[in-house]
Amino acid sequence: MTTALKAPADRRDPVRRGGTARPRRARGALRPWIYLLPAAAVLLPLFGYPIYMLGLLSVFDYRQAQVSGGEPTSFIGFENYATLFGDEKFWSVLAATVAFAAVLVVATLAVGAALAVVLTRAGRVPRLLLSLAAMAAWAAPSMTGSTVWMFLFDSDLGLVNQVLGIEGYNWFYDQWVTFGIVGATVVWHSFPFVMVTLYAGIQAIPGHVLEAAALDGASAWQTFWRVIVPMLRPLITIVVIQSIIWDFKIFTQIYVMTNGGGIAGQNLVLNVYAFQTAFGSSEYGLGSAIGVIMTLILLVVTLFYIRALYRSGEKL
C-alpha cells in the first residue's frame, strides 16, 4: 500500500514496468479498481442495466396486459420502431423538440452572454443584485419555477393579464404562445449557467487586451465579437453543447406548465412523449423505443462534447 506514495515509478503504466516483481505487477494492475469499484458498482446498475432493459423492452410487445400477466410477452423485433416512424405524431413531436431546443439554446446564449458583458461593466450593487437573481433562478427547483410562471400567465388571476388589461386571455391555448412561455421559463432557469461561465471567462481575459481594443476605438459590440468571442471560443463551444443537452432534456417545465403536454398533446417534446406513452398509456415497449431514440441522440451530442474537450487541449 505504501508504494503508491513512495515510488514515483508507480505513476508509470504498471504493465510496462520491469519484469522483476510479478506479484506486485498483478497487484498494481488491480489496485485502481479497488478505488474505482464503488463508483462502478453505482454506475453499472444505474446506467448499464436500465439501458439494456430499455433496449430489450423496445423490441417487445409490452403493455399493461403483459405487465399484469394476462398475455405473454412476445418478441416483435423492430415493430415498435416501425410504428413510431410510421406515426405522424412522432415526427411532429421530434420536429418540435429539435426546434424548441434550438430556439432555447440561442435565446439562453444571447441572454447569458449579454448579461455577462453587463456584469463586467456594472457597478458593485447592480452586479450583486444580478448575481443574486441569477442564483435564485439557477438553484430553484424547475417544478416551483414552472408554477410561478404559470401563475403569472394565468388567464383569471395572472399579473400579465392584469397589467395588460386583457381579461381571460388563455396563454396556454395556442401551441406557439404556450411554447413561448414555457421557453421563457426554461431560459430563466438556464441563463445563469451561461452568464456565470462567460463572466468568469471574460474576467480571465488579460485587462490589457481589452484596454488595447478600447484604445483602438472598438465599440462594445466590436470588442465582444472581435476580441471576447474568439478568445473564449473553446469555452463557448462547451457552453453551447451543454446548453443543447440541457434544452433537449426539458421535461418538468412542459409537464407541469402544460399539464402533461398541452391541448391534444400539441406541446409534447420527446421526453414527455416517451413518459406519456409508457406511463400514461401503458405502452411500455413503445415508450422504450422513444427512450432509445432519445438516448442515441444524446449520445451523439455527447461525443461532440468530448471531441470539443479534446480540441480545447484538455488532457483527460
Binding site: L36, A39, L43, P45, L46, F47, Y49, P50, I51, Y52, M53, L54, L57, I245, K249, F251, L270, N271, A274, F275, A278, F279, Y284, G287, S288, G291, M294, T295, L298, L299, V301, T302, Y305, I306, L316
Partner: peptide, 25 residues
C-alpha cells in the same frame, strides 16, 4: 481515461429517457 470518459458520458445522460428501464429495474 476510459473511466473518466465513461463518467463524463453519464453526466450527459438523463434519467428521463431511460425511465422505463429504471422503473423496470
Amino acid at each position: 481515461t476510459a473511466f473518466l470518459i465513461v463518467v463524463l458520458i453519464t453526466q450527459m445522460f438523463q434519467p428521463t429517457a431511460m425511465l422505463v428501464g429504471i422503473y423496470r429495474e
